[in-house]
């Protein structure tokens, strides 16, 4: 009997389960919106504008913004809990790098698991890595919103236009329309 060739990954195939999905509301009227900003260039003004438009156009009741201290890592559990307590829906991003796109999606999945609908926004250059992270977090096929790459070099006016363009997708992700 010859020796087997050893596997260098240490992985066993995990059973596939349905991705976590928090219950949706029919509309965002009266909803408290949480913005989880990852500190990437233009992420704060982008999400601020998304929050402002959700209040102005969709009747959300207010906005709570929080900033991650490390864009590369998923948000700490305390921050997830704090935002969950104060918010009905979450918008997180902007994923526009290798690690932060993946972690924005990981945060989205963490909020869904905890029972709060979340919309992650990533640049469209990072779809593969975002999808891979969703799968790692037990949420294969997790849906997120995308905005065209690049984001970091946009002017303030362009950032507002981008926020307006992605708004419909964000609303769809956060409500039963999605």
């Amino acid at each position: 009997m010859p020796n087997v060739i050893l596997d260098p990954t240490g992985q066993v195939q995990a059973a596939k389960s349905a991705p976590p999905r928090a219950p949706r509301r029919a509309s965002l009227r009266g909803a408290r919106v949480g913005l989880l900003v990852n500190t990437k260039q233009n992420a704060a003004p982008f999400l601020d504008e998304v929050g402002r438009l959700l209040v102005e156009r969709y009747g959300a009741s207010g906005v709570l913004a929080r900033t991650k201290t490390n864009f590369a890592q998923p948000a700490p559990e305390e921050l997830i809990k704090e935002m969950q307590a104060g918010c009905d829906v979450i918008v997180t991003g902007i994923g526009d790098c290798g690690s932060c796109s993946a972690s924005a999606v990981a945060d989205g999945v963490a909020f869904e698991t905890a029972g709060t609908p979340a919309a992650a926004i990533c640049s469209d250059a990072f779809g593969v890595t975002a999808d891979a992270m969703a799968e790692l977090r037990g949420a294969p096929g997790y849906a997120y919103a995308t905005t065209p790459h690049p984001v970091a070099v946009l002017t303030p006016e362009q950032v507002r236009e981008r926020a307006a363009r992605v708004l419909g997708d964000v609303v769809a992700l956060l409500t039963t329309a999605g």
């Binding site: 260098p8 240490g10 290798g98 690690s99 593969v128 890595t129 891979a132 992270m133 790692l136």
Partner: peptide, 18 residues
């Protein structure tokens, strides 16, 4: 490099985004 690729699962074009 092989440890990062195989043990950590960071592969080019997927979780590795160089």
């Amino acid at each position: 490099g092989l440890i990062v690729r195989n043990a950590f699962g960071i592969r080019p074009h997927v979780l590795e985004q160089a």
